[in-house]
Design a binder for these strands. Structure first.
Lengths: 144, 144
DNA sequence: TCTTGACCTTCGACTAACTCTAAGGTTTAG
DNA sequence: CTAAACCTTAGAGTTAGTCGAAGGTCAAGA
């Protein structure tokens, strides 16, 4: 099948598949005479595998390693378990941070509404963000 | 004060401050004779403002707008409230997604541990990620 | 006075994980 | 036969910074 259908089946975008291939995460599939990528069902299994790994927030570099081991029939469980432990921790603190952020937003929106009521014309110099009295949630790292 | 102290006070990194300035989010501050950036207390207030806005996950482009309005003494509350509404929604669904992910990870780690117990040598072809029977958390967008 | 170390300057390159654009070739339905 | 929908490539753009190189400045100590 061609890349569009494979993408559909695997739950990825065609452009992402090409990107993974270029990055060396996926092997290049067969090609039709006209040069189109031609995926088998096993290929699609691998695509799904990669999507699952990415949905677990495993970085592409790690996914590449895991895919290599997998294709050699070796056990990437060690790698996966290591990554999972790391991710579990990261996600835990991320949820906590986001919860704080959510609380802040709710509180600030209420404040904003009250401010808007007081000054319907609104010449406020942004009391909302200006307000010192809210705890700053620690900045999240891109890869927390 | 110089950039390092200002950064310290505002809770930013000096490199980030230079970056914001280059991106046009912040006005260039005074300079000493030797060319060092020289921040006043009001400048630091603005730095804090920006950090707060960013900690609310407001994109830099929006922060730039808000800062412009703020410096003209106009009310960016409208912008802020719009952004906040958007962010609140995004964060809500993000927390939900992460919660699912966290559950998966816990479940999968247990599975992994059991698998490891069964095959201490570990010739598994990664039953962990291979496992079809876990719900895929929808992929998070970079700016959800 | 000299030197050492901490601080500052700029610019350009790099990061992750794609997404988008341009310019073109192929396939399929009507 | 043609138009739409699909595919190809290379290369640039995205976000929000970080890092490195090469060099200038400042304060303290010998």
């Amino acid at each position: 099948m061609r890349i569009g259908e494979a993408a559909e089946e695997a739950g990825l975008e065609a452009t992402a598949i090409r990107f993974y291939e270029k990055q060396g995460v996926l092997p290049g599939p067969e090609r039709t005479d006209s040069g189109y990528r031609d995926y088998s069902d096993e290929d699609v299994d691998l695509l799904r595998f990669v999507r699952r790994a990415r949905s677990l927030e495993i970085p592409l570099d790690d996914v590449r390693q895991i895919v290599e081991l997998r294709s050699r029939g070796q056990a990437p469980c060690e790698v996966v378990r290591r990554v999972m432990a790391r991710e579990a921790k990261a996600i835990e603190s991320r949820i906590a941070e986001l919860q704080v952020l959510q609380d802040e937003l709710t509180r600030l929106r209420d404040l904003a509404d009250r401010v808007a009521d007081d000054w319907p014309g609104g010449d406020c110099v942004c009391h909302i963000v200006e307000a010192e009295n809210f705890t700053d949630a620690k900045r999240r790292k891109v890869r927390a």
